[in-house]
Design a protein around this nucleic acid. Structure first.
Lengths: 127, 127
DNA sequence: CGGTATCCTAGGCGATACTG
DNA sequence: CAGTATCGCCTAGGATACCG
């Protein structure tokens, strides 16, 4: 009997709307290791653009999931740290990581074969 | 020592690209209860449009996460079931559900206050 | 009922350039 | 180095209407 799942689906819907985002999750995951600077995150998160980094960080600050600390130094230094709320995402995130590793083969294959465009679309323009 | 997280971040990136989608996760979650019909899913998943339902189901079939069964009856009946691969998402999904319930208050507040537009934007047009 | 096809708009997101 | 602002593509995804 898993009826409760559907009862909760509304909450799930909300949480997914808020954080079910690739960059959001990747940033949270990266910060699980501890405080990091903007440039570190930029380097470690494969493929994120500076714009999306800053933007997502700001959102996470609004959410109260991370904290921003500015050090008044000459070469400016800003550090980001997880709050307790942010840290609380560790459980689902680790479960997801484990799953990703367990199914790595399928996932990699799917990733490579994933469609750039849409299902029945003409692919002649596949640059 | 959590270095491995970053080493795996590429796989995480891949899996997130594939399934870190609100509707995808909601559908998987709904099917955890067992086989379901199109209309059932449509009813139980809060706010999904028929188009997104069909589209996401098709993607999940391509991924090999669900199976589609057609019953050649007069009022057509089609059922969707999780494959083993699909079922394997139960762990991360349940962890996420638990987290959502644990932090329900914050999430609901954030959800209500979430911005429709962008950060520093003019909100005079907030319809 | 289940699914497809078309239209159409908001906004995600990269690229680029500029401030402190 | 950290961050903002601007432009512009291009896609997600809702609304609507039509087939088997």
């Amino acid at each position: 009997m898993v009826k409760s799942i559907l009862d909760e689906s509304c909450i799930l819907n909300q949480s997914l709307t808020l954080i079910a985002d690739k960059w959001t999750l990747l940033i949270l995951m990266a910060l699980m290791q501890g405080t990091k600077r903007n440039s570190e995150l930029n380097r470690q998160i494969n493929g994120i653009s500076p714009k999306m980094l800053t933007q997502t960080l700001k959102t996470l600050i609004r959410y109260g999931m991370i904290e921003r600390t500015v050090y008044p130094e000459v070469p400016p230094r800003v550090e980001y740290t997880l709050t307790e709320f942010g840290k609380s995402t560790a459980d689902p995130l680790m479960a997801l990581l484990k799953w990703s590793v367990d199914w790595e083969e399928q996932l990699t294959t799917l990733y490579k074969n994933r469609q750039t465009g849409l299902a029945g679309k003409d692919q002649s323009a596949t640059k």
